[in-house]
């Protein structure tokens, strides 16, 4: 699915680079070079706006106000001045995030992706990821259609990871929210449960990745 992004950036070179990098990353992008032009767009045509604050034609913050008053689409602010007051003002006016110049192209793409990221798809009380199906209501799990018997802790662990796929989840958080508080709640215990879960998932066991220094992640191969 192609996301349509509006870029408002007056600098020729930087604008062209951003357009090139985002297009390469698979986004459809429209580029405006003047603030006053941005004040005439129809916000609901876009899924995200990348907005430079220093613009000819209109104040960046005014453009932000305009976008906010017409829609709730995410706005990512580009700021050259590493100035707390400007950032705080932009966030207060409803900006979702900001990227400070200089930034790497990957950095910008990561911020855009993070804003467009949707929580793990949970349709009809079930999560489906690459042949792995978790029925949240019935508390059953199947791999490629075959049911897998999980303990309560293993199921909770898998569900916690599946709700934020491709994001590392800290061991401490998992230990607190997944393990039975009545029993041994240490992170070592968690590792034992994770190891058993992997085995039970068989071919899909590799989806449960250990993340060095952090904890675990359900890895679907898509960009996080």
């Amino acid at each position: 699915m192609t996301h349509k992004i509006l870029l408002v950036e007056d600098d020729e070179q930087l604008g062209a680079q951003i357009v090139a990098h985002l297009s390469e990353a698979g986004f459809a992008i429209q580029w405006l070079q003047r603030g006053d032009l941005a004040l005439a767009v129809t916000p609901r045509e876009y899924e995200l706006v990348i907005l430079d604050l220093m613009l000819p034609g209109a104040f960046g913050l005014d453009v932000l106000k305009y976008l906010r008053s017409h829609s709730d689409l995410p706005v990512l602010v580009l700021s050259a001045k590493n100035d707390t007051a400007v950032k705080v003002r932009a966030l207060e006016l409803g900006a979702d995030d900001y990227v400070t110049k200089p930034f790497w192209p990957e950095e910008l793409i990561a911020r855009v992706s993070a804003r467009l990221r949707r929580p793990g798809l949970e349709r009809g009380g079930a999560i489906e990821l690459q042949g792995l199906r978790i029925d949240v209501a019935a508390r059953t799990v199947s791999v490629d259609g075959l049911a897998v018997e999980l303990t309560r802790v293993e199921f909770e662990l898998l569900l916690a990871l599946a709700r934020r796929p491709n994001q590392a989840i800290a061991r401490a958080w998992l230990a607190e929210h997944v393990l039975d508080p009545e029993r041994d709640g240490s992170e070592r215990t968690l590792d034992v449960h994770a190891s058993r879960l992997r085995k039970k998932l068989g071919a899909k066991g590799a989806l449960v990745a250990t993340v060095w220094g952090v904890g675990y992640r359900l890895q679907t191969g898509e960009r996080a």
């Binding site: 995030d97 990227v99 930034f103 790497w104 990957e106 950095e107 911020r111 993070a114 958080w173």
Partner: peptide, 23 residues
């Protein structure tokens, strides 16, 4: 997330696994 995103390109280029977790 911003701070990690900032250094991720260099970490990747240096073949270092930079991971993060937030509640």
């Amino acid at each position: 997330e911003r701070a990690v995103a900032r250094h991720a390109p260099i970490a990747r280029a240096r073949e270092i696994a930079l991971e993060h977790a937030v509640p």
